[in-house]
Write a protein that binds this DNA or RNA. Structure first.
Lengths: 206, 206
DNA sequence: TTTTTTCTCCCCTTTTTCGGGGATTTTTAC
DNA sequence: GTAAAAATCCCCGAAAAAGGGGAGAAAAAA
């Protein structure tokens, strides 16, 4: 029984690399390689594939979104996430979208083959470094849900504008802006603007 | 005349990928492949190499540092930087350290061969996307040099502590902390703490 | 249509930051 | 050993933010 895989990565270099790594493994064949999400979807409509090796960073659609799409359209398909980063949010979001595993791009040949085999067999595969990240980093406080006005105010605050200046920009009273600021502090559970901005920047909210 | 190259990258996948991409090019031979800075240096002491394909992210030493080291030890060697990111600071720092070019890891076979040839011939090579970044993004204000005390204070500020609280932690007068804070604002050229923290977080200073 | 959320505005007081200085003592570097 | 840089502390006043409320209108959701 041969495992047919599809490689989705926008780096030709990486594609070639994976192909080279898997050359010796006769239980795995590379059914195809594509460099963007759209082509991946069309490819899968006309080809039988067992496992998709999916890069997180794609030009058109993020790997995470594509993963969800794939699992909805082809539920029996297994997805093995892949990226350079061992960022907690990436990994968990990938898994939430139905991925069966996650490897870093510095995997060895042996580990990659092992991962594909395991995923294909219906098991979960996380490489050692990745699972370490999952257990090591404490669950961060979830990012609160902000209203559109709050996001707007937050962005201006991070730019260094005062309540008065922001009020001018938004054509509202400075008191209103101050309310939003206070709500932001409360939602994020922080003591002052400095801590607020730190979290906002770290979470790419600005 | 054959160009001998050394590939320095900690991802076996990428190494295999480059080798595969360069297989057809008979004017280029891969003299060796190493996965860390230290091995790269020892390899170069006993092997003749024309061009080093150098990843920016290495486990032991950053590619940027290694680039400087290489150019000092082997001035005739050409370095072609390589990474996934088209971040201005990466690119410029690589060039400052004597790199002859910079390509993204999503280069095509043709472009990679072209780049190696050009670099080997003593010319500079920057791929289209990279040079676009260089001209498109305005020169960001360089990150000011901070004293150790300033870094310390900055970290506490970003955590949300007030001058008084920081003073307690550092066993100094709140007025001292305030001085540092003002110096930080001046050095970064920002109006208030919010903007200060934003830049600090964006530049990984905290 | 009713309920809930969001957006808006207001009060008061206290704390903190900011914008200008200036000055002394340690370190560090030459 | 001396000069430069860093760290320390101080003054004043004005501006801004924070803490802790309340409350009405508008929009979105149920």
């Amino acid at each position: 029984m041969v495992t047919r895989i599809l490689i989705v990565d926008d780096h030709p270099m990486v594609i070639e690399g994976i192909k080279a790594l898997l050359q010796q493994a006769e239980e795995i064949t590379v059914a195809g390689t594509v460099t963007d999400a759209f082509t991946a979807l069309t490819f899968l409509k006309s080809n039988e594939v067992d496992v998709v090796l999916l890069d997180i960073n794609l030009p058109d659609l993020s790997g995470i979104e594509l993963c969800g799409k794939l699992k909805r359209e082809f539920p029996r398909l297994k997805v093995l996430g892949m990226s350079t980063f061992k960022e907690r949010s990436y990994i968990t979001r990938m898994i939430e979208q139905g991925a069966s595993g996650y490897v870093l791009k510095n995997v060895s040949r042996e580990e990659l083959i092992q991962a594909i085999g395991q995923v294909c067999a219906g098991q979960m595969y996380l490489d050692a470094e990745v699972s370490q990240v999952l257990v090591a980093s404490p669950l961060p406080r979830p990012i609160p849900i902000l209203t559109s006005r709050e996001k707007e105010v937050l962005a201006w605050i991070a730019e260094g504008w005062t309540n008065n200046q922001i009020a001018d920009k938004l054509f509202v009273s400075p008191l209103t802006v101050d309310s939003h600021r206070k709500n932001l502090l409360a939602k994020f559970g922080v003591k002052n603007t400095a801590a607020l901005v730190k979290i906002a920047v770290q979470n790419q909210l600005v």
